[in-house]
Design a protein around this nucleic acid. Structure first.
Lengths: 139, 139
DNA sequence: TGGTGTTAATAAAAATTATTATTTAGGAGA
DNA sequence: TCTCCTAAATAATAATTTTTATTAACACCA
């Protein structure tokens, strides 16, 4: 896994710097994290890392598809390791995200939606917003 | 229509100021617009309107569900008049959004996704990202 | 050793929110 | 309908937050 990442970075002319690896593993550990959360986490491992470095790296890692941006209503965008297409369950209260698989049915139904349109579909983004277990029991 | 909006505003203790009405009709005219687009449009009708007023009103109109925020990857959030649940076709190049209906099948399939989870689902957000007709022909 | 890319530390720019004095919408009462 | 009144809204800043650009020093590899 670590090996693969280094190879992908190399393929795109990006060096596997400690900062970069720290950022990636911070995101992997958290699952989904926004810039601040990545920065805070990375800073513990690498106290001198700068916020601008986090921004710059996240941007370039998204550009080479190692990371994926997750735009959210009312929350700052989060980032996740780019893996299989999947959907998200998002808590409106705390912003927690849980991954959930995308079924074939949904992909099929979605394809039907754009039938007849001259639109070149590339990604499906399905987010289910609501209230998570924890937040239901809080208030 | 105009009448309904005024009533809804009143219900929430918001005055039907010219600025507010201008903002709403700018969004209605554009279909989907971000803060800058709303501001630019509104400024033509109402040259002294301030950007802060746009921010403030958009926020409060979202709060009373007259508007809905549409979070987007790589673009600033846009706002739309809150109507029937529907999905979006989003062009990755130009950011244009087209509304498209949400089918019963998709709602059904989505419900199945969260079966068994202690999650109180409220909204489905389905965005299909790709390249629109115009941008396919540009480059 | 020279070149390329990266970084931290800034600085700068862009986006958003807060403050405040003034203006206004809309209801109450004549 | 026509004032008057008041809470709410506004424009104009100012301040803050978020994001991006610049730069000089550093590390790595050919």
């Amino acid at each position: 896994m670590q090996k693969q990442i280094v190879d992908i970075l190399k393929e795109y002319g990006l060096k596997a710097t400690p900062q970069r690896v720290t950022i990636l593993s911070a995101i992997e550990r958290q699952g989904h994290a926004n810039i601040d959360e990545i920065y805070k986490d990375a800073k513990e491992k690498h106290s001198t890392i700068s916020l601008a470095t986090v921004y710059k790296n996240v941007t370039s890692l998204v550009a080479i598809d190692l990371l994926k941006e997750v735009a959210l209503n009312n929350f700052k965008p989060k980032y996740e390791i780019n893996k299989q297409p999947h959907s998200h369950i998002v808590c409106k209260k705390c912003g927690e995200i849980e991954d959930i698989s995308l079924t074939n049915e949904i992909e099929f139904d979605t394809a039907k939606l754009i039938e007849g349109k001259d639109f070149l579909a590339e990604d499906i983004e399905l987010n289910i917003y609501g209230v998570c277990h924890n937040c239901q029991n809080v208030g």
